[in-house]
Design a protein around this nucleic acid. Structure first.
Lengths: 225, 225
DNA sequence: AATATAACTTACCTATTATGAAAGAACTTT
DNA sequence: AAAGTTCTTTCATAATAGGTAAGTTATATT
């Protein structure tokens, strides 16, 4: 009974809906937490890492869209929006600013489950790599180590956060802003410097980076293969 | 402007909606065919391979759900369902039997586009060529590299944009204006220069271009084979 | 063949962007 | 409090993009 599929945060100001959804999802093996406002939710996601957030758009105080705008980049938890029926405009905005899916009210509980499973399966299938190896380099995020030519280099927390993101999105270009959000810094110069340091550890020839490359005008990419 | 993103079949018994959707999607670079019934659609998919089907559920004769059940397994074209508002039940059934997404009426055209792009990108991602090889040349748009005779040449963003277009439309002549639009330049001479630079990287004998050829008075073509 | 038009090439210039080193500030650990 | 880390700042230098100009070459037109 304690073997849950996923931990979901349900954000809705309506007590009825919250408890209804909670009850139904509980019966279907999801672990549910709830929040009754965007502010409440913002607090909770600081503490717990959820697998999914179900978010009502219309709420007193901050609404769902505002919540997404403020938090989506920092967290990468998928979000399903609950929209009032017919509110096509809100759905558009929601998807544009980063919701992963939406569900127009009223919805069948069964549909909610389908949508949830769809999203969870997407995000769970690439479970995160912690140890990778390529060429003569081994990166071990569990031990905070990079091993290059049998030499061990320690990586600190910042470096680890960046590497973790990049390793799990090889080939994806990260802007300095992207990286900054992860490590909670808005100093672009600092990010340059951190990249330089990383290169010293990860690259065979740090002056001619093969793996951690610059995309001029855009940011940085990690190539592994 | 014969360069469509995707070929879409719109199935709806309502003339108004059909032509409206067709018009809007046309303006957004989709090639649209229409069918006014499930039966009609069934005929058309026998002949043409569409990239996507937009399907109204409620139609006289066979309805959308029946259409899916009878055809989904044979074809692997993704389907977006148009559902009447509030018909949660139909949505559930639709998703269960194989629709890929649904759109509750009324919808914003913009939302339709978003949904379409979402699905197309999933299915087409692997179709858009990012790495191609011919003769002794390999173009890797992911890594921004051209490899010729085992020598690596970096390509910058401008070159990449041009190459990407050309690679995905080999044999098509691009005017300088076409190219200029892509790279946001209206300087024809500049484009000459960029082509020259590209040839140095891509051609075995840049003075006698085999791949990136001039169509005098018109523009340039890329031949790959 | 003479002329006009179009395309190519080279070299140069400027603005932008990235890098590297070094030193100080902020934070942790001992 | 001292020592060690890590982040930030600054600044000088380097690399790159992409446009311009001008002479050269190729192609078409008469």
């Amino acid at each position: 009974m304690d073997n849950f599929i996923a931990h979901i945060l349900v954000v809705d100001d309506d007590d009825g809906i919250r408890s209804l959804v909670k009850k139904y999802l509980n019966e279907n093996n999801f672990l549910i937490s709830t929040a009754n406002s965007a502010e409440d939710a913002a607090e909770k996601i600081k503490i717990v890492k959820f697998d999914l957030i179900i978010l009502d758009i219309m709420m007193p105080g901050k609404n769902g869209l505002e919540f997404i705008q403020e938090n989506k980049k920092k967290i990468d938890t998928p979000i399903i929006l609950l929209t009032a029926k017919g509110e096509a405009n809100e759905r558009v905005v929601g998807l544009e600013i980063g919701a992963d899916d939406y569900l127009p009210k009223p919805f069948e509980p069964k549909e909610l489950i389908l949508r949830i499973q769809n999203i969870i399966s997407k995000t769970k299938k690439n479970d995160l790599k912690r140890v990778i190896e390529f060429k003569n380099i081994k990166i071990d995020l569990n031990k905070n180590l990079i091993i290059k030519n049998d030499l061990e280099y320690k990586i600190n927390n910042t470096e680890k956060i960046i590497l973790e993101k990049m390793i799990n999105n090889p080939g994806k270009t990260f802007t300095r802003e992207d990286i900054g959000l992860q490590i909670d810094s808005d100093k672009e110069r600092s990010i340059d410097v951190i990249i330089t340091r990383l290169r010293k550890k990860i690259e065979i020839d740090p002056k001619n980076p093969k793996f951690l490359q610059t995309i001029r005008g855009s940011g940085y990419v990690l190539w592994i293969e």
